[in-house]
């Protein structure tokens, strides 16, 4: 059984991941919508930009976050001045790093589910008197929902595993930014801490496996044109 320090790590990891997904889900949906339905100049660029964290070395992404969201960074400065939000060496920064890394996976899953919604059904709804908003609410969103949930679960799992960008951006501070992968990394540096490593690894595997199974099941339901309501 995990000890109190390990429970602290698990609790922090879940908090950081939940915040990361909560933060990026609306943004991921908006981007997926733009990429699936929008026609605008710079669409290819947006597509590339969204996917960048997927192919960049995570350390590089972490460095970019440091530059942009550090106290001297333009975004960091603005957010501290307006909302009192700081990121450096804080758990909020770990959530931000996880959100950025999870975003491409979420956008992909949501985009696929939006593209799978037949526009002919939306047309049918409009001939029956439904406004664009009602059509979105009652037809598009429910049909895409399994994919949106799958994307969120996938993003959550990715956030739980985030390492490189996090340690670069907010360092490895127990109780503040030390999530599961960082705790495992630290424990590996300590001679004789193998039992702790094994326990943390087991928790990691269990959480990731659960998320993946849930995501797969939901994705398959979307593919069959299933329903969650």
């Amino acid at each position: 059984m995990p000890g109190p320090e390990e429970w602290e790590v698990i609790r922090l990891s879940l908090k950081v991941s939940a915040m990361a997904v909560g933060l990026s889900l609306p943004l991921a949906f908006a981007m997926a919508w733009a990429l699936a339905r929008g026609r605008f100049p710079g669409k290819v660029l947006l597509d590339a930009l969204v996917h960048l964290p997927l192919v960049l070395p995570p350390v590089v992404t972490g460095w970019f976050l440091l530059i942009a969201f550090g106290p001297q960074g333009p975004a960091g400065h603005l957010l501290e001045a307006t909302l009192g939000l700081t990121f450096l060496f804080r758990w909020t920064g770990a959530a931000l790093a996880a959100a950025v890394m999870a975003l491409p996976l979420m956008v992909r899953a949501i985009r696929l589910s939006l593209e799978a919604v037949d526009p002919k059904l939306e047309q049918a709804a409009m001939t029956l008197g439904a406004s664009r908003w009602r059509t979105f609410r009652t037809i598009t969103l429910p049909l895409a929902l399994p994919g949106v949930i799958a994307g969120a679960v996938l993003g959550f799992a990715r956030s739980l595993g985030e390492f490189g960008a996090t340690i670069t951006f907010v360092s490895n501070i127990p109780g503040e930014t030390q999530t599961l992968p960082l705790a495992i990394y630290s424990a590996l540096q300590i001679p004789g801490a193998e039992p702790q490593v094994v326990r943390l690894v087991a928790v990691s595997v269990l959480l990731s496996l659960g998320a993946l199974v849930a995501s797969e099941a939901l994705a398959r339901r979307t593919g069959r044109g299933g329903h969650v309501l």
Binding site: K120, Q123, A124, A125, M126, T127, A130, S131, I139, L229
Partner: peptide, 26 residues
Amino acid sequence: QQRRAGYVFQDSRLFPHLRVRQNLEY
């Protein structure tokens, strides 16, 4: 929405996530 056309499509286009009754009520 305002033309009030009752449009019956070749491929029926029933909403797959709604039961028949909810389709009829849409």
